[in-house]
Amino acid sequence: MINTYLPQIKSGQSNQFFLMAGPCAIEGEDIALRIAEKIVTITNRLNIPYIFKGSYRKANRSRVDSFTGIGDEKALKILEKVGKEFGVPTVTDIHESHEAALAAAYVDVLQIPAFLCRQTELLVAAAETGKVINIKKGQFLSAESMKFAVDKVKESGNEKVFLTDRGNTFGYQDLVVDFRGIPTMRAFNVPTVMDCTHSLQQPNQTSGVTGGKPELIETIAKAAIAVGADGLFIETHPDPANAKSDGANMLHLDHLEGMLTKLVRLREAIL
C-alpha cells in the first residue's frame, strides 16, 4: 500500500507535503478508527498523502507505572484494521530487533525511535523486512550524522527510508529545532520529515511526566514547510488532556484541519 505513495513523496519530487499523523499510542479500536476517519476526510479534501501513525507499544517511559499499551498483537491488529478500512498506509515504532518482523506483518512503515537511531542491529533488522523505514534523528545527534543511519538501511538492501527531525536536546528539560537540519538531511536524497509535536516536548520533568508546548505546533509546522520539509509528523487526539501517552504535546484533533489548510497554502506559495 505504501508503494502507491512513494512516487508522490520522493524527496523533491512532490508538489505537496505528506502527513504522518495519529495518536501517540493505540488506546483502543474505536478511538483509533475515529481519529483515522477524521484525518482521512481532511487529507482527502486537501489532497495530502496520508500515513496513519500509532505506537503499538510504548517502551520509552519515564516511570514504571506509565501506560505502555493494550497488548502487542491487539494493538497491531487495530493498526492493520485502520489500514484496510481506510485504504491508507500505517506506521508504528519498534524498539528491539526481534520486533521488526512482528510489526512488519501488520504495518507498512517501521519507525526507529530517536533514542535508538544508532542501534545497528535494529536498523538492519528493520531494513531486512523490506518495509519503508522512518528513522527519527536522535536529540543528541547532528543532522549530518544521520547519513550513517541511512547508509545502514540502504547497505542492508533497502532503499525505502525516511528521516524525521524531532529537535535537539537543549539543557536538561527542553528541546530546540535547528531548521538547517531539514535541507541537510534532504541532501541525502531521502524524504525528510519534521516531527511537529515531539520537538515541543519538555522531557525529564520532576513529576516523571513529560511536558510540552502544543501551542507552538503550528509554528514548527509552518517553519518546516517553509524550509522544504517533504512531510510532517503530528500526534493528534480528540482529548489530549486524557490521552494515555504524551497528551501534553499532542495537537487537539479539532485543530488539525485549520492548520493543514494554512500549510497547504504556504506550500503553494513557496513552490
Rank of each mutant, 00 (worst) to 15 (best):
M1Y: 06
N3T: 13
T4A: 13
Q8L: 15
S14I: 01
N15E: 15
Q16Y: 12
F17M: 08
F18S: 07
F18G: 05
L19K: 12
P23C: 08
E29G: 05
D30K: 15
R34P: 00
I35K: 07
K38C: 10
L46S: 10
I48N: 12
P49C: 12
P49G: 11
I51A: 03
I51D: 01
Y56M: 08
K58D: 14
A59V: 12
N60H: 05
S62M: 09
F67P: 07
G69H: 11
K74S: 15
L79W: 01
L79P: 03
K81H: 07
K81Y: 05
K84P: 00
F86C: 04
G87R: 09
P89H: 03
T92A: 03
A100C: 01
D108F: 08
A114V: 05
R118N: 13
A125Q: 02
E128R: 06
G138E: 09
F140H: 06
L141Y: 10
E144P: 04
E159F: 02
V161N: 06
L163P: 10
F170A: 02
Q173I: 00
D174V: 04
D174M: 03
D174N: 15
D178H: 07
I182W: 04
P183C: 06
R186P: 02
F188N: 00
V190W: 00
V190H: 01
P191D: 04
C196K: 05
Q202N: 14
P203D: 08
P203C: 06
G208M: 01
T210D: 14
K213I: 13
P214C: 10
E218K: 11
A221F: 11
I225R: 07
I225P: 01
G228W: 05
G231D: 09
G231K: 11
L232N: 02
I234T: 03
E235C: 09
D239M: 00
A241Q: 15
N242A: 13
D246T: 04
A248D: 14
A248E: 15
M250W: 02
M259P: 02
V264D: 05
L266R: 11
A269M: 13
A269W: 12
